[in-house]
Design a protein around this nucleic acid. Structure first.
Length: 825
RNA sequence: GCGGGCGUGGCGGAAUUGGCAGACGCGCUGGAUUUAGGAUCCAGUGGGCAACCCCCGUGAAGGUUCAAGUCCUUUCGUCCGCACCA
């Protein structure tokens, strides 16, 4: 064994050995109990950052730990390799995106290996690889067959900087999620996936995902945004069409005092044509066009509207109400038209106030503090129906049902459900993505490429000018093809897929990554799926996780896999901060993993990251903290090295003779137990590590404080220490394990057994309180009864002194914990 | 505005779920050893007090309880998500 803790030599040695022995390959052993452990795969941007190191260190501890528990663990890694940065690099540095990406993958793969992670590299996938995107295209065609992929012309979010469209989900505060540029609108014909068909299931299943953080479930729930209500038809005076509105409050129909259309509503121009209102309406529309989405959607935006000179008739009470257009009504939700009930809707109330519109209360709160006829704000809570004809006196929630039924009976409305979730726009006007495998034929329209012709390969000779349109459109050899149906000349789709499609099923491909004939084998997928533990950043709470759920459901429905939900348990790890801020180049506070590894080693880097904070919390990077972790590993190293000659040849078994033996044995066994439960049940790696530190402290104390060392106990303690520490810092532990005389590698060695007998203590310290304040601590026999405990406590001199002259009101005794004496006077 | 989380020493963070607040680590103070040390070891380290076996202390205020960091009510601060979704 080496004299000094030479982490560099040790880490290189064991990484090479693991690799040479193929230690991390996972067989499809259907007989064994499986555990599918997955961390979100990275985009190969060039180098790993600390967030990656944290994410993958968490996963690696679990892998190593679970292997020790005997599970067949699938722990794969791959690359989310399509995407814009590669293309930008192509434009900027005149390097091909595939070359750039491959270089980055190579670099990052070697960084991952330098951290000692247990990935099964035989299962590596890269989404930009034709073997992968072939099946991506195949899946797209299956979606198309099921009617879940369609093309539609629509105003779409357009990022002028990235020069591509964005899904609604990729627009953050009206800006491009990636580059922050303000997003505009463009009318384009684009491919969509019908995720809205699955809205209800995506929502309902959330309740079953109890292994997910509540926060993520809530975010998805809000994103899907289901609201139940009714649609109702309002006739328009002197107009042949009816206006259909959507409301979640059909109970307030009698309180309607005006109507509001989205300015883009298709009826608006007809309604004002040739009237004095035409001009102001057009001006209003024009003004609105100049408003970006960001302003248009802000709640702070002053509500503005315009009467358009027309009236419509409330179908329930025949009341004639004016029609407005206003900036707060959106065309792309509901029907683009609302009935306004200012008494019971805050937005309508605000608008009515501004334009002096009538307010009619129809729900009575029975609250003396609220003057229904001089409302200060809209009343939106429950109450009793008033001014509502035959519905008067009902509770308003009952009235909702009754009025909806009435609408349906009279054929003037229907029960209706609306979702905020929109269909997923997946076309991207970019090069570096999977080509959408569709062909346009003059005669047959859009036709999928024949499956036997997949993949539709990305051509390599493409010019990147950086100007708007899809680069593939310039490549005639790519564009010109023949119709799969009639064989006549036809043109390929030149847009590529949103990269979120690639990452929506990669976890399924890992189950059978080299399959040439099928997307994946069902038996293998059924064995491995669902992912037992998924780990990644919370920034993917909505997009990626929702899309992946959607894909898995569709693939389930097609019969490709039995699982409907892909991820049973989800852990969202916190960010890595420096000086309280997110590490970023612009702030200049980035700590590079490489630097830490070369200075302290991978084990220290992993240990610090796991020790400094629980995984789901933010982690504050601390150079001093890293040094502390390094110090601890050195302390372990010296301890084992010093004990090695002492315990050499001893058996790994012992009788605890002295009190010190018993004490050490107790600490040892409770540490093994605690590390197990901290890791397995709670992912509390920080407390697991701190208890190992306590064990090391106890071992130092034991060895320095004893005349007669119990060598069997020490041998067992050293072996156990190395075992329980190994998931966190595998390299040093392998080296120590070897030094302790083991010939098999530590990876996959069984977890040490807990000796329950050692955990039973003869005596225990209890606390004696007077009126809830600790006054004395006593060592007593374990498991004393309440009566016996009380007796011991009362007999104590100090306690006697304090309670003398006082009246004892009550005594509470909790075995093995405390006695509380309540006194008066 | 709505929804969710979080407030504990100088710092990162513990506390078997109502039972000794501050584990473990960082930092700091003193000492030992060393030619030297940013190495190692020992002791101390929430505040107050000359001192204690005393008093105070988990953002603030109130409550429940023999007992509250933990439960309830109110409130302040902070972070995150959604944000005119009818």
């Amino acid at each position: 064994m080496l004299e000094k803790y030479d982490f560099q030599a040790i880490e290189t040695k064991w990484q090479a050995k693991w690799e040479a022995d193929s230690r991390f390959r996972t067989p499809d052993d259907f007989e064994k109990e499986k555990y599918y452990l997955l961390e979100m795969f990275p985009y190969p941007s060039g180098k790993l950052h600390m967030g990656h190191v944290r994410n993958y260190s968490i996963g690696d501890v679990l892998d190593r730990f679970l292997k020790m528990q005997g599970f067949n663990v699938l722990h794969p890694m791959g690359w989310d390799a399509f995407g814009l940065p590669a293309e930008n690099a192509a434009i900027k540095n005149a390097i091909r995106p595939d070359v750039w990406t491959r270089q980055n993958i190579k670099e990052m793969r070697s960084q991952l290996q330098r951290l000692g992670f247990t990935y099964d590299w035989d299962r590596e996938v890269a989404t930009c690889h034709p073997e992968y995107y072939k099946w991506m295209q195949w899946i797209f065609i299956q979606f198309h067959k099921k009617g879940l992929a369609y093309k539609k012309k629509n105003p779409v979010n357009w990022c002028p900087d990235c020069e591509t469209v964005l899904a609604n989900e990729q627009v953050v505060d009206g800006c491009c999620e990636r580059c922050g540029t303000q997003v505009g609108k463009r009318d384009l014909e684009q491919w969509y996936l019908k995720i809205t068909d699955y809205a209800d299931r995506l929502l309902e299943n959330l309740d079953k995902l109890d292994g997910w953080p509540q926060k993520v479930r809530t975010m998805q729930k809000n994103w899907i945004g289901k609201s139940t209500g009714a649609e109702a038809d309002f006739a328009v005076e002197n107009f042949d069409k009816v206006l259909r509105i959507f409301t979640t409050r059909p109970d307030t129909l009698y309180g309607v005092t005006y109507m509001v259309l989205a300015p883009e509503h298709p009826y608006v121009s007809e309604l004002v044509q040739g009237t004095e209102y035409e001009k102001p309406v057009n001006e209003f529309l024009e003004k609105l066009q100049y408003l970006s989405d960001i302003d248009r959607n802000a709640t702070t935006l002053e509500k503005e509207g315009l009467f358009i000179g027309r009236y419509c008739i409330n179908p329930l009470n025949e009341k004639k109400v004016p029609i407005y257009i206003a900036n707060y009504v959106l065309m792309d939700y509901g029907t683009g038209a609302i009935m306004a009930v200012p008494a019971h809707d805050t937005r309508d109330f605000e608008f009515a106030r501004k334009y002096g519109l009538e307010v009619i209360p129809v729900v009575d709160p029975h609250n003396p503090d609220i003057d229904l006829y001089d409302l200060k704000e809209a009343f939106v809570a429950e109450g009793t129906m008033i001014h509502s004809g035959e519905f008067n006196g009902l509770n308003n929630t009952e009235a909702m049902v009754k009025i909806t039924e009435h609408l349906e009976r009279e054929k003037i409305g229907v029960r209706s459900v609306n979702f905020r979730l929109r269909d997923w726009l997946i076309s991207r006007q970019r090069y570096w993505g999977a080509p959408i495998p569709m062909i346009h034929c003059e005669e047959h329209g859009w036709v999928p490429e024949k499956e036997e012709n997949l993949p539709v390969r990305l051509p390599e000779d493409v010019a990147f000018t950086g100007t708007g349109a899809s680069p593939l459109a310039e490549n005639e050899a790519f564009v010109n093809t023949t119709c799969p149906i009639c064989g006549k000349p036809a043109k390929r789709e030149v847009d590529t897929m949103d990269t979120f499609l690639d990452s929506s099923w990669y976890f399924l491909r890992y189950c059978d990554p080299r399959n040439q004939n099928r997307v994946f084998d069902k038996e293998k997928a059924d064995y491995w799926m669902a992912v037992d533990q998924y780990i990644g950043g919370v920034e993917h709470a909505i997009l990626h996780l929702l899309y992946a759920r959607f894909f898995t459901m569709v693939l389930h429905d097609i019969g490709l896999v039995s699982t409907e939900e892909p991820f049973s348990n989800l852990l969202t790890q916190g960010m890595v901060l420096k000086d309280g801020k997110k590490m970023s180049k612009s702030l200049g506070n980035v700590v590079s993993p490489e630097e830490i590894i070369s200075k302290f080693g991978a084990d220290t880097a992993r240990l610090f990251i796991l020790f400094a904070s629980p995984p789901e919390k933010e982690l504050e990077w601390s150079e001093k903290g890293v040094e502390g972790s390094f110090r601890f590993l050195n302390r372990v190293w010296r301890l084992v090295a010093e004990m090695f000659p002492v315990i050499q040849g001893a058996a790994d078994s012992y009788d605890a003779v002295s009190d010190a033996d018993k004490n050490l044995s107790y600490i040892l066994n409770s540490t093994i137990k605690k590390v197990h439960s901290d890791v397995r049940e709670k992912f509390n790696f920080n407390t697991a590590i701190s208890s190992i530190m306590e064990l090391v402290n106890a071992l130092y104390k034991y060895k320095d404080g004893q005349e007669n060392l119990n060598v069997g106990l020490l041998k067992h303690a050293m072996n156990s220490l190395v075992l329980v520490l190994s998931p966190f810092t595998p390299h040093i532990c392998e080296e120590l394990w070897e030094g302790l005389g083991h010939t098999e590698t530590l990876y996959g060695a069984p977890w040490p057994a807990v000796n329950d007998a050692s955990l039973v203590q003869e005596s225990i310290e209890i606390v004696v309180q007077i009126n809830g304040k600790v006054r004395e601590k006593l060592i007593v026999d374990t498991d004393l009864t309440e009566a016996a405990l009380t007796e011991v406590a009362m007999a104590d001199q100090k306690i006697q002194k304090i309670i003398a002259e006082k009246e004892i009101v009550k005594i509470i005794a909790v075995p093995n914990k405390l006695v509380n004496i309540v006194v008066k006077g």
